[in-house]
Design a protein around this nucleic acid. Structure first.
Lengths: 201, 201
DNA sequence: TAGATTGTTAATCGATTAACAATC
DNA sequence: TAGATTGTTAATCGATTAACAATC
């Protein structure tokens, strides 16, 4: 969909957070001020922003509100996108309760679980549905994205069901490599591994 | 401490997970078999492994158990490292209950929170302590690492306290950029931003 | 020995940084 | 106009891939 490289895309939320935190009295911002605050190269910031729909003006810089709007546009924040979450245990439950997804136009519409005692309940006003129904459920059919928070033993099974339902993007918290057709984009977050890497730096 | 580049270091847990999942009957593994299974370049795998303490044998490959042991060694899994977690809300609570850190030799020794109703309780047998005591607390003093799971408004405050206590590595789940002396390593995980990036690919 | 596989050296690719021209 | 700042073109750097020599 987008031709902005992934490394750049990953920095856009960082710029966005910084710009939103700025005082309203800052009408314009320069690439240098952003770079200094975020400890990035000045040219890198300018190149990143040049790849977005943002418009910079020589001698002036970027108009803050305009830049925020451009970044939100490029990150797709202005379009509501549905997502489902599979595995409503500790982490899954916490993510369903997290309200920060809305900033990016992401709406978690439902959770799935296999635990009979959870099915039929709601978490943060979202229904918890039977995991067996993933491929056929309306909630999945109306979503393009999914978050996997199940134990690693069943992660591939869940992934297969999501793919069957037409899910195109998966954020996987299970510490195992998932296999899916190449049109399905998968990214992994392994918290324990991240901390271990951090400790070895 | 380590001179293995961060990109390589990040792949070591992936190799490790794959090797552990293999059947015991696989006495040796080749860089090609690993590469195929993980969809990586064959030479990349070999170069990564060459940077570790693993020993490969021409014509034979790597002895699976030996390779696992080498990777665990290089990732520091064999040394117990203490960590504290600040912010025992939904996400923090879930991470304190997660038992996967042990695989990497990481031991979360305590949680900190400012909520009076949480202080004094335990989560997964770990005490929840008063966040105000972070800089002086024995738990922090005995730890090198910390996980920040507090709202972004107080994340920098918490970071400052951790730095004061001598923490050298921080995994930050708050969607805000933290400032710390350069000897302190910080890595950020922004789940909502990650999902937004995924959706824009 | 011959074949398979590692490890290394050279080539390529992509991302970052430096230099500088364009411009408000 | 002169100075500040953007955007672009060229140079550098690091990571990945390709080619190949070493070896069990």
């Amino acid at each position: 969909m987008n031709k902005i490289p992934e490394v750049t895309l990953q920095r856009l939320p960082v710029y966005l957070n910084y710009l939103k935190e700025l005082d309203d009295s800052d009408y314009t911002v320069s690439s240098r001020s952003i770079a200094t605050a975020l400890k990035l190269g000045e040219v890198l910031v300018r190149k990143d922003l040049a790849m977005t729909s943002a418009i910079g003006r020589p001698k002036i810089g970027y108009i803050r509100t305009e830049l925020i709007s451009a970044l939100e546009e490029d990150l797709g924040c202005k379009v509501i996108k549905n997502a489902v979450l599979v595995g409503c245990g500790g982490l899954g439950h916490a993510l369903m309760c997290y309200n920060g997804f809305g900033n990016y136009g992401i709406n978690i519409v439902a959770g799935f679980d296999n635990d009979r005692s959870k099915i039929g309940t709601t978490i943060n006003n979202k229904p918890v549905l039977d995991g067996e129904t993933i491929p056929s459920n309306e909630m999945t059919k109306n979503s393009d994205m999914a978050i996997i928070c199940v134990p690693k033993e069943v992660a591939q099974l869940v992934c297969d069901k999501l793919v069957k339902a037409g899910i195109k993007a998966i954020l996987n918290f299970s510490p195992t490599l998932l296999h899916a057709p190449e049109e399905v984009v998968i990214r992994d977050i392994d918290v324990a591994a991240s901390l271990a890497v951090l400790a070895s730096l």
